[in-house]
Design a protein around this nucleic acid. Structure first.
Length: 208
DNA sequence: CGGAAGATCCACT
DNA sequence: GTGGATCTTCCGA
C-alpha cells in the first residue's frame, strides 16, 4: 500500500485523470513542513489538438517544454507575468496533455498557506487555494518545480478519496475564450457545492 | 523589431 | 464591473 499515486495513474487520457484527481491530496513539503490540499477543481488540456492548450498545433518552446514529459510530472508556468499555474502532465511522453489544478481545500499546514497568501489582505475562509494562482501561492509552487516528478519529496499526489461521479459538476473551461470551439469543450471538473471552487458553477442557476 | 495577448488576482469605483 | 501589474511567447511588418 503506497501513499503516492503510481505512474500508471497519470498515463491515462487527461480527461479521465482530471476527473479522477478530484478528492486526491496534493502534498507539498516546504522546509520539512507538510502542506496538503484536497483537490476540488481541475481542467483538462488536450495537447496539439486543443486550441486552448499551450501545446496547440504542436507548439513547443522553453516555457512549455515540460508539457512533453511523460505523465506524472509537473508543468508550472507564469500567467500574465504575475501568477503561477500548476499542471499535472498526463498520458505518454510527447503528447503534451495536462490537467490544470484550479482549486483545493486546506487539509494540513493551513497556517503556513495563509501566511504565504498574505499579500493583499487576509484571505476569506474559502480563499486559501480557491484558484490556480492562489493554490500555487499557498503551496509555494513556482518555476523551480517545473518538470519535477510528482512522486518526489517536494511534491506528490496521495490517493485521498476519489469523489463519486454524482457529486462532480462538469462544464467549460475558464479564461479560454480565445480558443474558438475548444472554449466550449466540457473539460472543467469540480466537486459540487464545494466552497473552495474558484468560481460559482454556471449550471447552479435554478438549483440550490 | 514592435505590438498584442494571455489557463489570474486584487484594489478600486 | 473595470483595469493594472509584469513577463514570455507569437506573429506580422
Amino acid at each position: 500500500m503506497s501513499d503516492v499515486l503510481p505512474p500508471s495513474f497519470f498515463r491515462r487520457p487527461a480527461e479521465v485523470v482530471a476527473l479522477d484527481l478530484l478528492g486526491r491530496w496534493l502534498v507539498r513539503d516546504v522546509a520539512r513542513r507538510r502542506r496538503v490540499v484536497r483537490i476540488v477543481e481541475t481542467e483538462a488540456y488536450l495537447g496539439a489538438a486543443d486550441a486552448a492548450s499551450h501545446a496547440r498545433g504542436g507548439l513547443r518552446s522553453r516555457r512549455n517544454d515540460s508539457l512533453y514529459l511523460p505523465g506524472g510530472h509537473a508543468y508550472v508556468y507564469l500567467v500574465y507575468g504575475v501568477h503561477h499555474c500548476f499542471n499535472v502532465v498526463t498520458g505518454a511522453r510527447g503528447m503534451a496533455d495536462a490537467v490544470l489544478i484550479r482549486a483545493g481545500e486546506p487539509i494540513e499546514g493551513e497556517e503556513e498557506m495563509r501566511r504565504d497568501r498574505h499579500r493583499g489582505g487576509r484571505p476569506e475562509p474559502g480563499d486559501v487555494a480557491g484558484g490556480p494562482g492562489k493554490l500555487c501561492q499557498a503551496l509555494a509552487i513556482d518555476l523551480e518545480l517545473d518538470g519535477a516528478p510528482l512522486s518526489g519529496p517536494e511534491l506528490s499526489l496521495a490517493p485521498g478519496e476519489p469523489v463519486a461521479a454524482e457529486r462532480v459538476c462538469r462544464g467549460s473551461r475558464i479564461g479560454v475564450g480565445y480558443a474558438g470551439e475548444a472554449a466550449e469543450w466540457p473539460l472543467r471538473f469540480a466537486e459540487r457545492d464545494n466552497r473552495h471552487v474558484s468560481r460559482p458553477w454556471p449550471w447552479k442557476r435554478g438549483g440550490r
